[in-house]
Design a protein around this nucleic acid. Structure first.
Lengths: 228, 228
DNA sequence: TTAGGTTAATCAATCGATTGATTGAGTCAA
DNA sequence: TTGACTCAATCAATCGATTGATTAACCTAA
């Protein structure tokens, strides 16, 4: 009947979440296990107890993020296959939806409020860091995280531009992903250059721009109305 | 007649270059001054002597990179103004040239050979790092480095799409810069996804793709021949 | 029910190593 | 001699990691 005193796994969880947040903010070398355990209100020795080492904690944080993965892509309608009826129109919708969903995910809730998405926001910072220099040995986890995104987009493009070689299709997908991530990654620099940053309230604007720009880029400008 | 014993400024220089290389590779927290001075074949105390502190060395490295700036943008023909004759055609050439030059800069010479561009290559890694989280106090230097790039591209777009509002023009420029930098930043991830990385030998291919994709994206698809 | 034993979980204290920084003596050309 | 330069030695602070002790919950034989 009494309130359960921190069941053991709760402490482990707090350590994991604190690790995600701080590793995302400052990188592996930027935080110490003391700072992490302080934020988690736990003893620093528990890092070794639960995860073996600081690197173990980092790996666990990655796996943790991967497991409770952000399902915005999984939640999207499956992209059509080539022989499907109305495949083209469906792929078009999928592509637009994907761009919007990905952007929304990236810009999700930067509120100080105890939003459950605080972790999500940090998660993408975390992945962005790891993406730039994938340490050997962690490659599988990162690929597992990234692959669904790449595959979804590739599937759309395969239907939209079946005439292109696979190489060319890959380039197209890269151009689209580049834009989506740019507005999130380079938020600070954009803010410096144009005076103000893009925020969650701009996701619609950004998604529309990227969609229009990319559909024209894909050579599908004729399917857009009202644009030169 | 005897070999000149490291003139003082030479040691300082070696420290600076070693700092650029290592900071670029591992980030500020990833390297110690001992490792830096060892690579520079200098005493670690000289970091404090010449630069005051580790952070001073980091700042000096940034300024150093900024000063001996990579002039590929400055070397390009100035983008035309709106009222200039044949402004459109010139802007088109400038844009294409810019994309190619920027890409070539990013992919410049990864050879182990003592290529003077080894620094250049590290430089962009350095800037990429700093771009993601511009530390207060260093903002001016970074802006000074980035501004010419942003301005050049903006000038081109202003001529190519004078009908667009400034906001929309900024979005266009962002979409283009996003692509250029993506293929460099996410080299490792691209390599994992498609099996092999893009290298200096692919600059032409990439530049052509980005140019074509972006010109269509800009709504100038009609100026391209042979593409749907 | 109770006493004794086992376990996982947590803690403060401490380890050796490494960090950035400081010192004071030394070198050498001017 | 002076002043710019360089060095080995050393500083306090912090790093990740280890230790032994403590706690609380559970299990089991009496």
């Amino acid at each position: 009947m009494k309130p359960p005193p921190d069941s053991s796994q709760d402490t482990r969880q707090r350590l994991l979440e604190a690790a995600v947040l701080l590793f995302a903010q400052k990188g592996f070398d930027g935080v110490g296990i003391r700072e992490i355990s302080q934020k988690a209100q736990a003893n620093s020795a528990l890092v070794q107890y639960y995860f073996g080492s600081k690197e173990g904690l980092y790996l666990a944080a990655m796996s943790f993020l991967f497991d409770q993965g952000i399902d915005s892509v999984a939640a999207l309608p499956a992209p059509p296959s080539l022989d499907e009826p109305e495949a083209f129109a469906k792929a078009l919708d999928c592509l637009k939806g994907y761009i919007h969903a990905f952007l929304e995910e990236l810009f999700a809730c930067h509120d100080p409020a105890k939003c459950s998405r605080e972790l999500q926001s940090a998660a993408h910072l975390f992945w962005t860091r790891e993406l730039m220099e994938p340490a050997a040995g962690r490659v599988d986890i990162i690929l597992g995280h990234v692959r669904p995104y790449a595959d979804y987009l590739a599937a759309c493009i395969r239907v939209l531009r079946p005439d292109l070689a696979e190489d060319a299709q890959f380039l197209m997908g890269s151009s689209i992903h580049a834009q989506i991530m740019f507005f999130h990654r380079d938020m600070s620099m954009i803010s410096l250059l144009r005076g103000s940053a893009y925020g969650p309230q701009d996701v619609g604007t950004l998604a529309t721009h990227i969609s229009d720009f990319s559909l024209r880029g894909l050579g599908l400008g004729n399917t857009l109305q009202g644009v030169q």
